[in-house]
Simulated scan of single mutants.
Amino acid sequence: MKGVLLVNLGSPDSPTPKDVKPYLDEFLMDERVIDTPQWLRNIIVRGIILRTRPKKSAEAYAKIWWKEGSPLIVISQRFAEKVGKLTKMPVALGMRYGSMTINKALQELNEKGVDEVLLVPLYPHYAMSSYETVVVKTIQEQQENFPKIKITTLPAFYKNEEYIKVLSESIAKGLKGFDYDHILFSYHGIPERHIRKNDPTRFHCKIDGNCCNANSVAHHTCYRHQCFDTTKRVKAYLNLHENKVSNSFQSRLPNDPWLKPYTDFEFERLAKEGKKNLAVVTAAFVSDCLETLEEIAMEGKNQFQEAGGENYIHIPCLNDDDAWVEVMAKWVNEWEKNGALPV
């Protein structure tokens, strides 16, 4: 019997330092998130970051927390329920970090008699700190606890035509009535070394402004290229003016080169260049979360306006939009019927 496992990032159980601390510990101690030797990761995370970050992060979570709970969890649950109504297969939801574990989701499917699972990392792009860690963790759980279950993984869908269509039309809906000067596609940042580590050729990814445009097998696992490609495809679909669209990368740790340009720097630059009306798209995420609702929708707006900008909107993620649900249901049903995966 076949079933579907949807996996998103995760969330602390409450917006309190007590619950945020163990969540951050699990997240930041992941070797695919902070990819240093474990002894150094221990010093960075447990000796430095966790001494101050839980309180600050809890305050940020409190700003965006819903009555029903964490926005990321609530949205993901709504999405999973809607997909479940459009397929005959059992659909389970797990999180890479936090109490809604992948193990629990696999156990739920196992108890329903599922022995073949389609794993769906809810990330459009391939990165070792998001897509890859979900796949690795799921396979580890399967091998250790559910050896009779077969896992098939949905590929990163950043350039799939059906995904680009629903993303583009969602953006167009968000832009309706807003006379923008500029649209900034803000993707989640990752360290530059992650790009080089995921380069199977070991020489293509130079992050020099040219490599992302030159055809290479490296693009299959290059987060930077995939982000730029998503923007390019949306821009073409919506016929957006070349000079009114740009990319940036949000979130980073200090003293380490991460993908550029940095989103917060772009807010200031665009405002000082005279852009008064800015729309921001967070296309690295399919579900709104702390990084979109607090970092971009709230803090980003403040940064842009303090630098001289005036009107600012954050366009919501796809969340549980019916058109997005229908696309995902189509993908899982095609896999159930004939083993086909989207390209």
Rank of each mutant, 00 (worst) to 15 (best):
M100D: 15
E81L: 12
I75C: 03
P124L: 06
Q77A: 08
E116D: 12
G113L: 05
G98P: 02
T101N: 13
Y126M: 03
N103L: 10
G113P: 04
E108Y: 10
F79H: 10
I102E: 01
G84M: 10
L86F: 13
R78W: 08
M95L: 09
K112H: 15
I102K: 03
I102A: 00
L109R: 03
V120N: 04
G98R: 03
Q77W: 10
G94E: 00
G98T: 13
V83K: 09
I73V: 15
L72R: 04
K88L: 10
L93D: 02
V114T: 12
V117E: 02
P124S: 09
R78S: 14
I73Q: 03
A105S: 11
Y97A: 02
Q107Y: 10
Y97D: 07
L93Q: 01
G84I: 11
M128V: 09
K88A: 14
E116S: 06
M89I: 05
M89E: 07
T87D: 08
G94H: 05
G84Q: 08
E108H: 12
P124D: 14
I102P: 06
L118N: 04
Y131P: 00
K88V: 08
K82F: 00
S99M: 07
L109D: 06
Q77V: 06
G94V: 02
K88E: 15
G84V: 11
P90A: 07
G84E: 00
